[in-house]
């Protein structure tokens, strides 16, 4: 129990540290890397609650795929740090106002008695974790899952159709045409000897090199 507690506090400390670094660190690539660390630590915490499936899926989807694409973009874009900070003072009052409203909302919701925060209990798994999630998704919540998947499918198709550009823009050479060409089509040997011997030039043109 003690080791579990120590592990929890270590993970929690890393998670909070990483999350606060995401919003405070100056460099966007570093911020993205701290976000990766935050996701990974969160997965560790879920693992400690015996939610193995969710933990592994979090790593697989967010750490393994989403954040890689994110880094990909952040690294390719050369952000001008100076220009980003330009209007900091001007926008600060609005920012503070929004932050204040969000904090007030969260406090007011979380302080309601019914929502008193209890530590999440670790899953008591009689069936294995995947099976439990599968039963829930495909038995109890089958319609929401199906509707969500159809919406996602539409989204995918819409995104792909945006990359279709009617006529082909790039000019290319078909390899088959290239291979079918022979020397005769491209090369003409002109005889440049004395113009007097017109007969011989006609002959040499006939056998074409």
């Amino acid at each position: 129990m003690l080791t579990e507690k120590i592990l929890f506090y270590v993970f929690a400390a890393i998670l909070i540290f990483a999350a606060s670094m995401v919003v405070t660190v100056r460099h966007s690539v570093r911020a993205a890397l701290f976000l990766v660390l935050a996701f990974f630590t969160a997965a560790g915490l879920w693992l400690m609650l015996h939610a193995e499936f969710l933990a592994i899926v979090l790593v697989l989807v967010y750490v393994g795929a989403v954040m890689v694409l994110f880094l990909f973009v952040v690294m390719s874009v050369d952000l001008d740090q100076g220009r980003l900070r330009e209007g900091f003072g001007r926008h600060m009052p609005v920012g503070l106002l929004v932050a204040g409203v969000v904090i007030a909302e969260m406090v007011s919701i979380l302080s309601i008695d019914q929502l008193a925060i209890v530590a999440p209990e670790s899953a008591t798994v009689a069936v294995n974790n995947v099976e439990a999630v599968g039963q829930l998704l495909y038995r109890q919540y089958i319609y929401p899952v199906e509707i969500a998947s159809v919406i996602l499918l539409v989204g995918i198709i819409a995104a792909i159709s945006m990359t279709l550009r009617g006529r082909r823009q790039s000019r290319y050479i078909a390899p088959a045409e290239q291979l079918a060409a022979n020397k005769r089509d491209r090369l003409r040997v002109v005889d440049l000897r004395e113009p007097a011997s017109t007969d011989s030039s006609a002959e040499s043109k006939g056998d074409d090199n």
Binding site: V36, E52, F53, I56, L60, G64, A65, V68, N129, V130
Partner: peptide
């Protein structure tokens, strides 16, 4: 129980080494 999924999740992390090295 989640052997295969674990392998998939762990191996997908390998790309970070490459990206971070490059950057």
């Amino acid at each position: 129980n989640l052997g295969l999924l674990y392998v998939l999740a762990i191996t997908s992390m390998g790309v970070y080494g490459v990206i971070i090295a490059g950057w």
